[in-house]
Design a protein around this nucleic acid. Sequence first.
DNA 1: ATTAGCACTCGCTAAGGGAGAGTGCTAACA
DNA 2: TGTTAGCACTCTCCCTTAGCGAGTGCTAAT
Lengths: 345, 345
Amino acid sequence: MELGARKLQILQAIVDDYIISAEPVGSRTIAKKYGIGISSATIRNEMADLEEMGYLEQPHTSAGRIPSDKGYRLYVDRLMKTRGLSISEANYIKDLYDKKTRQIEQVIFQTSKILSDITDYTAVILGPQLNQVLVKHIQLVPIGNHCALLVIVTNAGIIKDAIVDIPEGVNGDYLHRISNMLNDLFRDQNLGGITLEPMLKMQEGMIQNREFFNSLVDAFTESIGVLDTREVYLGGTTNIFKFPEYHDIIKAKEFLDLLEQKDLLYDLLARNDGKGVSVTIGEENRHQELRDYSVVTATYSVGGRTLGTLGIIGPTRMEYSKAISVMDFMGKTLSSYLTQLFYKE
Amino acid sequence: MELGARKLQILQAIVDDYIISAEPVGSRTIAKKYGIGISSATIRNEMADLEEMGYLEQPHTSAGRIPSDKGYRLYVDRLMKTRGLSISEANYIKDLYDKKTRQIEQVIFQTSKILSDITDYTAVILGPQLNQVLVKHIQLVPIGNHCALLVIVTNAGIIKDAIVDIPEGVNGDYLHRISNMLNDLFRDQNLGGITLEPMLKMQEGMIQNREFFNSLVDAFTESIGVLDTREVYLGGTTNIFKFPEYHDIIKAKEFLDLLEQKDLLYDLLARNDGKGVSVTIGEENRHQELRDYSVVTATYSVGGRTLGTLGIIGPTRMEYSKAISVMDFMGKTLSSYLTQLFYKE
DNA sequence: ATTAGCACTCGCTAAGGGAGAGTGCTAACA
DNA sequence: TGTTAGCACTCTCCCTTAGCGAGTGCTAAT
């Protein structure tokens, strides 16, 4: 069957209407509100065709139609009117970034808040990709009678720390020397490529303070491990309550449980290839748990290198046009903010 | 009116039953299940008395009774059978702590998970009290062409970092010198007592690199500010769905929104005076928003000094006995774990 | 003082019965 | 041949009604 211009027009009207109303759309509504100059009977015929072709669905016999995932896909790819951000929206975002936070974590956290505020969906952000990150400094800082903090600083502005036990007879100078050795071993190394071997070799050479070294190796391993785990930041987790289709307690709980599965979210976000905004609709999602939601992602980068991913999750009945504009804008804004932070001109 | 032994016995039975069933308790139920050897008619009379005295409430004329907040209070103070933790529960907790995490943040986060898992309520933990915390080390670590990371390490094992812009012509040696000056100024100072003054004085002395100093002062202020804000950790936020009285979407959303108000939670937790487990029931809460919930808190400490607070929030129909036992045990376990971490014997 | 008996209240649930929205089909029309 | 008006039909939603069950409070007997 042909997918003529009129059919497209009708599909567009249905999706537009359903996105706003969350109610099945009937032929009369289309005829009245979106006057295309044809009668509701004709529209009914076209709608039956569109359903047969898989673009529409009918919740029950005597209800209007709702778009199928395939319908949304067509809408996103060909029908949707792309709208840029309004000036006020763009200004709202820029104003918030003007607070000049200097802590990466804060910046990302704040971004998730902005995203969820503007879109009304739930924001999910994947923190900086750490296996492309270099160790810049390692130091043991004594903080109490018998313990020190192992501090590892990377060029992504991420720090991790762990507590190291210090036995009797180890003084500050000694810690300083060890710190220097660690620096010599690991500075400017890629985090992903770091192995424990040089450290174990160093440990062998040390006959005294074996206990201390064990503790140090543990702390080091743990820190590197944690650095390798990318953080997932969430914003607007309760936004889902704004949509009538999730007023059902079971569905709401399902969604909130979904957000607790960090590895799933990670997987979801890590899939963006860094080439612009990506939209995944309902069944298109790999994960069964996500088959009722749509996801829009974009990436952010520093100095041209992709570092992480922004995403929003909402019902398949999503305001794709707005979502895509916002994601595009936010990805670019965050990138330029971070770039500026790191390479101040 | 007298509050005789039999009335107490009946009140106890009602609270016990209601905590489990979440259904108003009738006189027949008491007579049957909690055979006290008196008839339901007598129990009805006693129940009417208890209601008049304010210990019970009746949702509607022909329903059973439910405990009032005053009733719960009496139950907690005088009636409840205190039960210690079961061996398996205690072992479960100990096993999890045996993983020996060396990162304070991780330890606290994990504690919140354990608390919410065991109790089925929502766990809220207030991070270490930082204004009693000393600065142990400050350093500027260069991490890129034109930026460095300002790293502040404290004896509580907390680190904060912020990015500092570096203008042309400032080299590593210079940063090193500045780091040393900062250390001389602030090392071993109490975080709460730190002012910017010495730093501004230092800034005055510097004629060159004014821009760099502005950036540094900003970063410093921001870091100290963030360090002063105590983190609130949450665990089991969706546990509330387990209780039938919160199957109502409005109430569920109300609760989840409550958890987003960090300052309220902070206030709630900061109120524990450090002398054991504290129970606040419904209306007893200062905050209007909390009047439908009960809160049980305990503190944790390192080397005898109280550092922070653990809490759980749940319906007033809470398993107080279990909750109190668990909180008591967790407070002590966390304290001893942290103490051991800091002062390894 | 306690208890059996009983009338009464109230919430819950299921059943019935429009009202309304929307469809699909048929027949007339341009 | 494509379009449209008309109409019977379907299905959901909501309101009302009725009956059931749990539980109470009162009264009178023990």
